[in-house]
Write a protein that binds this DNA or RNA. Structure first.
Lengths: 108, 108
DNA sequence: AAAATATGTTACATAAAGTAACTAACTAAA
DNA sequence: TTTAGTTAGTTACTTTATGTAACATATTTT
């Protein structure tokens, strides 16, 4: 007897964003293509989870992976069009946070 | 040597939204005050977690809890101003999902 | 007193995330 | 030609979060 149900597209969208780290990864990639090690450092995520998340994001068509066979090898992760189209969402979260989140607390 | 760090306010905001269920709870409450049992049914979350999430949201000032001592007792959860101010975020996620999420798949 | 209703809570099983050490492929230096 | 350095991961293991189902509390109706 569930007459009212949440829109399945919205639910799918929020299930992407509500997975830990994916929002930050997308936000960070909005500033341009980046390498694995840079993402781990800036975001503060472990290699294990970053690897897992990037695979998922690639599978969902939000991120692309490019190998540059230099030495040492360089691999860059970049948002696809679908990924970049999340910018307005991130912008809204950003501006909400500016208005409603308190004094930037000291990170440990 | 982490020169570039993600904005701590943004990080705080996304840590709210990236917790499982909170996005859906806020989205659902945007349509008006609702009771515990209604939220469990519409969202498909267990009582145990809904209880936990509502407590967190209340502690963060996003949701308020009102007891109506009728019979049987009625308790309503409602967004605060801070909670309602997330509407633009939800609207952006909604419109992104309409454009980029595929055919609404059959829920089991 | 028993059953019904609403709002939770407790106890326990399963899944996801965190941590740290390790691997693969390559190069440059000793 | 071993040794060490670099990047991009993976494996094994511990800790935390989530899911499930039965139970608790308060109140009213039968």
């Amino acid at each position: 007897m569930d007459t009212s149900v949440i829109c399945p597209r919205f639910e799918a969208a929020i299930s992407i964003l509500s997975q830990r780290w994916t929002g930050l990864i997308i936000y960070q990639l909005l500033s341009g293509p980046q390498r694995f090690s840079q993402l781990t450092e800036v975001i503060g995520i472990s290699g294990r989870l970053l690897s897992e998340r990037l695979k998922n994001l690639e599978a969902q068509g939000l991120v692309s992976r490019t190998v540059y066979p230099e030495t040492p090898v360089r691999i860059e992760y970049e948002l696809t069009e679908k990924g970049r189209s999340l910018k307005p969402v991130m912008d809204e979260i950003q501006s909400w946070s500016q208005e409603w989140i308190e004094a930037p607390v000291q990170p440990n």
